[in-house]
Simulated assay, not measured.
Amino acid sequence: MTAYVISEVRVLDEALAQRYRELAAASIARYGGRYLVRGAVPEPAEGAWDDERRLIIVEFPSAERLREWYASAEYAEALRIREHALERRLLFAEGLS
């Protein structure tokens, strides 16, 4: 079953955020993930959205592959940078079978 990473981010340091993006993208690809939405400012149909926040949606072939990616050594370096580069909310969700 397909699984998704949904992330809402606010950039704290643009240079660090760029390095994070590079590392994250390489690690995502290695685990079979692909970006569906990357850095978008969504148009809220209901409720409010902070214009400083960006939306990222990544699709993985399964929840197992998603969790392998998140716990991987390849992504660990990106996570260390993320702490200073981005403020974010990160969600994992499984798709429909």
Score class of each variant (00 low, 15 high):
W69F: 13
A17Y: 07
A76S: 12
A71M: 04
A76D: 13
V37G: 05
E52N: 14
I57K: 10
R65E: 12
E64K: 01
A15E: 15
A29R: 14
E83N: 07
G47K: 11
S97D: 12
D51S: 13
E68D: 14
A15L: 14
E64M: 02
F60V: 04
V41C: 11
E77K: 08
A73P: 05
R89L: 13
E87L: 12
V5N: 12
M1C: 05
E59G: 08
R54H: 11
E8F: 15
A40G: 08
D13S: 01
G95I: 02
A63M: 14
E74K: 02
S7G: 15
R80M: 09
R53H: 00
H84G: 08
D50P: 01
G47E: 12
A63F: 03
S62Q: 06
I28C: 05
E14L: 14
R38I: 06
G33Y: 11
L12G: 11
E77F: 05
S7V: 15
R89Y: 09
D50L: 00
V5G: 12
A93I: 12
R82E: 06
E83G: 08
G33Q: 10
L86D: 05
G33H: 08
R30E: 14
A48S: 13
Y70L: 04
L96W: 14
R88G: 06
R21H: 00
R21C: 01
D51L: 07
E59L: 12
G39F: 10
A29T: 13
Y31L: 08
L90K: 01
A63N: 05
L91A: 04
A63H: 09
E52V: 08
R80I: 05
I6V: 15
S27Y: 09
E94I: 07
Y75N: 07
L12M: 15
A71Q: 10
M1V: 10
E64F: 02
A25D: 10
I56V: 15
E64T: 00
R54D: 02
V9M: 13
F92C: 03
S72T: 07
A63W: 05
M1I: 05
A24G: 04
A40N: 10
L23H: 03
W69H: 09
R21G: 01
R19C: 00
E46F: 11
E8H: 15
L66E: 02
V37F: 08
F92W: 03
L86I: 03
S27D: 13
